[in-house]
Amino acid sequence: MSEEFEPNIVGFACNWCSYAGADLAGTSRMKYPPNIRIIRVMCSGRVSPAFILKAFQMGADGVLVTGCHPGDCHYIAGNLKCEKTMGTTRKLIDVLGIGEERLRLEWVSASEGSKFADVVTDFTNRIRGLGPLSGKSQG
């Protein structure tokens, strides 16, 4: 493997839109960096701040949460609840020195395979640019 820093990225995808969008990226054979590992939840509203903190604690360099576009949520407004929760979580991780830019929330619909691939590519590149999370605290 290359010498370049390869970040660990944890992804959370809601079953109805974003996970299906990620599947579509695959079905369409779009390519994106392999750093992301996706965990399926039924709704982005299921993503608890504890999951984000756990991911960073375990060594993730970035966390990407994806949900349905506003208005499209299978559970009416789970995505909006997620947006609120992630807003608070972002502040929290910033205070902890993790840096709010390491947590991103994106809306990806079931038909947006290419958007999913683009978002993952962009996020991976940004995290790669930020460098390892542990390296940061060690100076």
Binding site: V41, M42, G45, R46, H74, G78, K81
Partner: peptide, 10 residues
């Protein structure tokens, strides 16, 4: 219950 999980986060 539809199983979205919002309550367990809240």
């Amino acid at each position: 219950c539809k199983g979205c999980g919002a309550c367990s986060v809240a």
